[in-house]
Amino acid sequence: MNNSMDFLLWVKGPAFEIALFIFVAGILIRVIEILLLGRKADLSEARSSDVRAGIRTVLNRSIPESGILKKAPFVIIVGYLWHICWFISFFLFVPHIEVINYLLGISWPGLPNQFVDTAAVIAMISLLAMLIYRFNHPVLRFISTREDYLVWLVTFLPLLSGYFAFHHTFEPYAMLLGLHILSVELFLVIFPFTKLMHVITVLMARWYNGVSLGRKEPENQEVQS
């Protein structure tokens, strides 16, 4: 019991601080690295406001185009399910909100535990489904790298360990909670150096796409067909 208590104290203390430092510093480095590259001003005469096009694309890209939804419904539906359930599991679980409140001094209302529990299960199932799909789909199997599988594992572990900790599946609980926090730390540490960065850079990517392509769009109309 003492050993697991020591372990829990270590992961909650020094290990957490180190992980958080790498997470924050890593993200800052990555974002600055991108911004410092800059981009040339577009000298062609814009047809419509590029700022509005940028904002529009940041928002609109969350809605799949109807043709692609028909062609690849699995990726899109499971993708949605995954992101929503992950968000609920992480940001709307009361103990998590308390940790965030302790760290940043901000908080918001959470959801009932049973609800979050269900979301976590759906998140895990959708992750597993996507892994199986990745193994089997010719395109996904072809373009997947070791990083994709590493990121999958490191994203899955916090959910699994969190689920076990919440249900006290194993004893001692301190060890279980410690493992959960450790898995989150692993997630934080690899975040800035892998495709997990998309959480941040998706906003930049959509923005740049929007301003460069959207300035050619007709004003006030989106004729689709």
Partner: peptide, 26 residues
Amino acid sequence: IDAPVAAFFSSCVHCGLCAEACLFYT
């Protein structure tokens, strides 16, 4: 290589949807 290129590569999650948009793949 400019900021958009760096932002694009940083964001790719290998979802494979671009294949379905490309007639050379479909």
